[in-house]
């Protein structure tokens, strides 16, 4: 395994509820790279995201995943988060009764504590989050509400981005964060992602639409179909897909 990889997925097979969802998937991501994943509905894109984030129900039956040179599959979801993995959910979960701000501070401080840092007090934390809300053009009143409870689709996605900005991950997986966003929100969120781009931080962006990739320029574009990566290329592949759909790839493979 080459040590300059952030993420090295080798031949991973995974299943959920007895259904095989990943069928020998390989993917390598270096620090600082942006990879886009496209592919038909049901291809396994969210399954890949969930496997990376550590959801129990998704069982890896074969293959290996190394993250920062470490065996990722040995780590609990919270440990993965502490080590810098962040998945923005395709369908963020509503949690009534749990205050959004309190949740964010718990998450933020859990990561700090795991990394041997002092937890941040309520007031400075509040200031920090409010500033990030500003960057995301998000009304800070959302912080007072219960986590994602009754949020509109787009509001949930913005709330996911707020968490990403806060937790400053090393590997951010955005599972269809652009779906359901209005045009302004798409711009705001793309700007937020771009502002986080640096030589250390990598992104895995799952999307159905080329338009997002106009804003967030990927280094690589992959097509995921039937549980594996069937084609990879540069940004131009996305344009080709937009034009031709996925059928031609199936013929090629």
């Amino acid at each position: 395994m080459s040590s300059d990889l952030l993420l090295d997925i080798k031949n991973v097979c995974a299943s959920v509820e007895e259904k095989q969802v990943l069928k020998g998937l390989s993917l390598q991501i270096k620090p600082g790279e942006v990879h886009a994943i496209m592919g038909p509905n049901g291809a396994g894109k969210s399954s890949l995201s969930n496997v990376l984030a550590g959801r129990d129900a998704f069982k890896v039956t074969d293959g290996e995943i190394a993250y920062c040179g470490e065996d990722l599959l040995e780590l609990s979801p919270e440990e993965r988060a502490h080590k810098g993995i962040f998945m923005a959910f395709q369908y963020p979960v509503e949690i009534p009764g749990v205050n959004n701000l309190y949740f964010m501070r718990s998450a933020f401080n859990a990561k700090r504590e795991a990394n041997g840092e002092e937890p941040m007090e309520a007031y400075p934390f509040m200031m920090k989050v409010q500033q990030l809300c500003g960057e995301l053009e998000m009304n800070p009143d959302f912080l007072k509400r219960a986590l994602n409870d009754g949020f509109s689709g787009g509001e949930k996605k913005r709330n996911e981005m707020l968490q990403m900005m806060l937790l400053e991950p090393k590997l951010a997986i955005l599972d269809e964060t652009d779906s359901g966003l209005d045009i302004d929100a798409l711009r705001v969120i793309s700007n937020a992602v771009n502002s986080l781009r640096n030589t250390e931080r990598s992104f895995l962006v799952v999307t159905h639409y080329q338009r997002l990739l106009d804003y967030i320029k990927p280094d690589f574009v992959h097509v995921l179909a039937n549980g594996k990566i069937v084609k990879s290329g540069d940004a131009s592949l996305a344009l080709e897909l937009e034009e031709k759909g996925y059928a031609w790839i199936n013929e090629e493979v």
Partner: peptide, 25 residues
Amino acid sequence: QLFYLRSRGIPENQASALLVDGFAG
């Protein structure tokens, strides 16, 4: 819900405590 909280770095026992509090909320 548990997975959502854990995926944000909140340890499992703390995540369930949060959900319990939220339930009584």
